[in-house]
Write a protein that binds this DNA or RNA. Structure first.
Lengths: 118, 118
DNA sequence: GTGCAACCTGGAGTGCACTCCAGGTCAAGT
DNA sequence: ACTTGACCTGGAGTGCACTCCAGGTTGCAC
């Protein structure tokens, strides 16, 4: 079973080491395994979770929802809840996206208008 | 020349009254005209600017850049600078959008995978 | 002319998501 | 063995963009 140091985990997941500790404190990650000396040793499972959490964060999921998802992942009979959570999030993402696309349109119209002045 | 009370301006622009005052303090809006009693009276020009500022904010432009844009709008020989600023912003928006679209894809793949378990 | 909502000011407080710090421990190369 | 860098903890600090507050003034409706 491969494990990863904090630095490796940070670089592979895209979260900073401080953020990894923060997520653990916040109960988003389960308590991470330790070496004899007390250093964290992240597993492949945690890496996978972290990569997906990164996706959730980058699509704007707030940390509180992240915690809910992370906790659901600690039990394997929670797939329906995870689906529900992700479906709801997907909907939110779609709405945000539609909003931004509309504003992007306005922005490019404004630019066109400015260019027509020159 | 129509003018608007703070409450009207807030409801038309989508910013709160507190945010309108904050933007004025921050130099994003020019000093707004006042009635005899000292109450703000927003003009159509300010309304128009605010509506566009809303578009810029909702596409993630930071307040510091907003200030730059607002200040450029106080002089009418700054159209090239405004174009440059908006082109740069449009590029940033496009990048963010591409990012989110990619993550949205991952999200829907994950959902598909979860659904396939049931 | 009185009530009451909307407005004013300067300044303090909030929420979110980290990020940094001090003071100490652990691990790997030489 | 010793150095050096990565890691540990609890807790404080940061940055952004507002948002709220106290204590007072204005202005319309009755």
């Amino acid at each position: 079973m491969t494990t990863y140091t904090p630095a490796e985990t940070a670089s592979l997941s895209g979260f900073s080491i401080d953020t990894l500790r923060y997520y653990e404190r916040e109960g988003i990650l389960p308590a991470v395994a330790r070496t004899a000396g007390g250093h964290r040793a992240y597993s492949d499972a945690e890496l996978g979770l972290l990569e997906f959490l990164k996706c959730l964060r980058e699509t704007g999921m707030p940390v509180e929802r992240l915690r809910r998802y992370g906790q659901l992942c600690q039990r394997d009979d929670t797939v329906p809840e995870r689906i529900a959570l992700l479906e709801e999030h997907a909907e939110t993402v779609q709405k945000q996206l539609d909003e931004v696309l509309a504003q992007q349109q306005r922005l490019s119209e404004k630019l066109e208008w400015y260019r027509s002045l020159g």
